[in-house]
Design a protein around this nucleic acid. Sequence first.
DNA 1: GTGTGCATGTAATGAGTTACATGATTAC
DNA 2: GTAATCATGTAACTCATTACATGCACAC
Lengths: 195, 195
Amino acid sequence: MPRPAGRPSQTEMAVLGALSVEPMTAYAMREAIRDVLGHFWSESYGQIYPTLALLQSEGHVERNPGARPGSFVFTLTASGKGRLRQLLGEEIRIVPPRNGLLLRLFFGRTLGVEGCQGLLRTARDDARGRLAEYELLARKVSEEDRHSPDLPFQLLTISAARHSAQSVIAWADESLKVLDALESPADDPERSSTT
Amino acid sequence: MPRPAGRPSQTEMAVLGALSVEPMTAYAMREAIRDVLGHFWSESYGQIYPTLALLQSEGHVERNPGARPGSFVFTLTASGKGRLRQLLGEEIRIVPPRNGLLLRLFFGRTLGVEGCQGLLRTARDDARGRLAEYELLARKVSEEDRHSPDLPFQLLTISAARHSAQSVIAWADESLKVLDALESPADDPERSSTT
DNA sequence: GTGTGCATGTAATGAGTTACATGATTAC
DNA sequence: GTAATCATGTAACTCATTACATGCACAC
């Protein structure tokens, strides 16, 4: 008698979507979400297991014995495919944003210019690292799913990540220059007598 | 006896930070956060009021009678300034990403190419709208806080939003072209006999 | 035999929003 | 007088993570 009450439909979408690509165990699903959807989505066991149980009780997925005793492979049923289509059509619910980096920078006067510069450099380097990862990921899925009908859509999401990382890098570089100028306003025509 | 238990330090940071700009009521703080930090942060009454009560009990903020009976203006104390500095120095906690748009696009095969195009167009138009808002916001704060030491940092965060919106627009445009080609692969040199 | 990876599942906990109840003041 | 705005505060609920308990299989 699993009672995940009000059903978090986003998790449901992710779970059904994962099974629309191929049948898998709950464990494998978590791995796949972390590795492939990791840059824009996350699910924990605490969500996946109850959701699968619910989905099974409604006939949207089928639970069959897996490769070893005590393991189960889940498969999308026809009704599950319908449910997925329905969920994909639902309006995107906007999540209230919470960007810890920007919050800190906004209070940069208290944090100090140097602190801000440190944060910006870290953010830029992180973005660069991610950019490299995305290149790799794009190549990896292009190879592995060479002829999969899912490939173009997967590449779309990786492209989004790339654009986003690049925008962070550009912004951070620009901002670092602004802060440099702020620290040593050497050739400011308004002020005349600086050494 | 307010017991907000484990203390969500991010909310604490936002609240103390808001008061570092100027003293205000809880209500005004919520307005300010929505209007100025809105594009990267959010706080609800359910967070603000208990946090202010906690902060006051610890001497980080002072509660004084406001403009009208039953209203209170909060002011940052010296200890509060210290606490804010401490919080600003804390490591940024990375939040697990959840991008509903990318999740849907990833399952684009099930959603359908046209559905994806619709989502992309909406996303692009939203980003354009936001871009215009950011222009306005930048001009507004530049004017209002012309000589405020907080201004350059505020502009930094608006610049981040601008870059981000621009990257969404560029990505969406690019992706729409990809999907167009997917729907009607007319002049694909690999295939010869298309009408 | 023992550590690592595959695998299931639940309980405790956290963080945050929404909705509500309440009331004074201001503008029309 | 009445609607909108300013203002405080709490309770219920939702969504999600983390940590734990459990155990098989396989490589070394």
